[in-house]
Design a protein around this nucleic acid. Structure first.
Length: 489
RNA sequence: GGUCGGUUGGCCGAGUGGUUAGGCAACGGUCUGCAAAACCGUGUACGGCGGUUCGAGUCCGCCAUCGACCUCCA
């Protein structure tokens, strides 16, 4: 197996060669969405980043089990004490059953991910379906003396943990500093230290989502689900844990602490964090209220958007930046991505029409190796894309009759283009994406064949009429050397 | 305040101690019934000031500036 994949491990702050726990297998856990609202552009980053990892590692030959959770309980509005469950709050506001809210936004999340051609994870567990597993972890931590009960709630004893372990190993926090920097909120009285986090919360009377336990009728703390579900489906130690950089602290740090105590060993060998998408230089997020949902991108229905954007444009926009860099949103940047993607996909579609020649003007093997090297270097999709644009030039010069590939090379080249464009980057032609279908395709081809006949007899009126009317319907026609091309706008 | 990370040509974005990132936009040319597309060519970017070096956007120091996290956040 090609095992030259290097990934940046947040734990060590270096790029490391990836070595799986079990040869040929890869366990991947990524923090998924909290389904209390529509996914926005920011949520799209981890989905696409880890989709790329999923696709690439499968291509490398790993049998990948990709677990991405759905958080449908346990996320509090504020810090552990006085908060209200996000799902419960939304349910109250909309007078819906909490699970009705969960179902609604889960369905929409799935639809949006499908549109973005994000593959379904192997397992998509829900927090609410794993209350028992979460309580088992609470018990284990209690048994080992690293948690304490207070007024029906259970908190993790960070100070005690830090005596034997390093609370802050992932995020670079130093516990001493957290004494002074942790924000003091109301109702912290139940905790020994403000930085202790809840494993189990006693439900207040008005709290809708609640489960019985020996501690109280309540609900799990928000870090717990990931520890419970990753252990259940991937084992107590697994290969890669992913998520957004903003989850590094406290979420991932708490996960590590909980799992380390409950299971007695390392949670994950590699931690990968995608950076944020910014808007006007600031993080796009819920709290700032500066987010644009995917729905709004697809429809163009938002005051900051000058047009609608195809899901593939969004995908390409994200892949054009490295996942560990911030990526700044703007209409200009998105439009540039749209045009670039269009050029790439048009050339890609032309591959089928190429005919082999006597000699090869391009070195396909060398090119393919560079593409793999880019991916092996911490999933450097921007570099891969730059190589693909080199291929675009090749294709176009071959179409123009200025260069050739031998039959063997052409076949190889076509296979690799398919691999990189569709299988690994997950890009697809907008004609397919828009569901044009065979019939429509054939009808347009027929019309344009008629137009070619009119053109041949220099009937410019008919020639232009067909082109212009098709264009008005959203079909862009382009003449080629001895034929035509078209695309749906 | 603490911790961490940015600052690259008109825009977006890679990378690297010495040789072209790439895309978009712009300009010039070729092709073309027209248009579109395509192809070819052009632009001497690397926040500032010092230092190390034969040579630094690339390493070091200082300064400026922006941001992320420290509270829910992808």
């Amino acid at each position: 197996m090609d095992n030259k994949l290097f990934i940046y491990n947040t734990l060590t702050r270096t790029k490391e060669q990836f070595k799986p726990i079990h040869e040929g297998h890869l366990g991947l856990y990524v923090c998924g969405p909290t389904v209390y609202g529509d996914a926005h552009l920011g949520h799209t980053r981890p989905a696409i980043t880890f989709d790329l990892l999923f696709r690439y590692t499968r291509h490398l030959g790993y049998k990948v089990r990709y677990v991405r959770n759905i958080t449908d309980v346990g996320h509090l509005e504020n810090d552990a004490d006085e908060g209200e469950d996000k799902i419960g709050k939304k349910a109250r506001l909309e007078k819906l059953e909490p699970m009705e809210v969960v179902q609604y936004y889960t369905d929409r999340y799935h639809a949006h991910m499908d549109a973005l051609n994000v593959l379904k994870p192997s397992i998509e567990p829900r927090a609410s379906g794993h209350i028992i597993e979460q309580l088992q972890i609470v018990d284990k931590i209690m048994d080992k003396g690293y948690a304490y009960e207070s007024n029906g709630s259970v908190y993790f004893d960070v100070e005690k943990y830090n005596q034997q372990h390093n609370y802050g190993q992932l995020s670079g926090r130093v516990l001493d500093e957290l004494y002074s920097t942790t924000r003091s909120l109301d109702g912290q009285g139940e905790k020994r230290n403000s930085f202790d986090f809840a494993l189990w919360k006693k439900a207040s009377p008005e709290h809708i989502m609640r489960w019985p336990s020996k501690y109280s009728e309540g609900f799990p703390g928000w870090h717990l689900e990931c520890s419970a579900m990753s252990a259940k489906y991937l084992g107590e130690t697994f290969d890669i844990h992913g998520g957004g950089m903003d989850l590094m602290f406290p979420h991932h740090e708490c996960e590590i602490a909980q799992s380390t105590i409950a299971h007695g060993h390392v949670l994950a060998n590699y931690w990968m964090h995608n950076n944020m998408i910014t808007i006007n230089g600031q993080k796009m997020g819920k709290s700032l209220g500066n987010f644009i949902t995917l729905e709004e991108f697809f429809s163009g229905n938002h005051k900051l958007l000058t047009q609608a954007y195809d899901p593939m444009t969004i995908r390409f926009f994200i892949l054009q930046a490295h996942y560990r860099s911030t990526l700044d949103f703007s209409n200009e940047a998105l439009q540039a991505a749209q045009k670039g993607l269009q050029r790439l996909m048009e050339a890609y579609a032309r591959l089928d029409k190429l005919t082999a020649g006597e000699k090869s003007d391009f070195n396909i093997t060398e090119w393919q190796e560079k593409c793999h090297e880019a991916l092996n270097d911490d999933l450097n999709s921007p570099i891969l894309i730059s190589h693909l644009f080199e291929a675009v030039k090749w294709i176009n010069s071959m179409v123009a009759g200025q260069a050739t590939l031998t039959a063997d090379d052409l076949k190889l080249f076509t296979q690799y283009m398919h691999l990189f464009v569709e299988e690994i980057l997950g890009l697809k032609n907008s004609i397919d994406a828009k569901g044009g279908g065979e019939v429509l395709k054939n009808v347009i081809d027929l019309l344009l064949t008629l137009r070619m006949e009119a053109k041949a007899r220099k009937d410019w009126a008919t020639t232009d009429k067909i082109r212009n009317e098709l264009q008005a319907m959203g079909v862009l026609v382009k003449d080629t050397k001895d034929g035509f091309e078209w695309e749906l706008k």
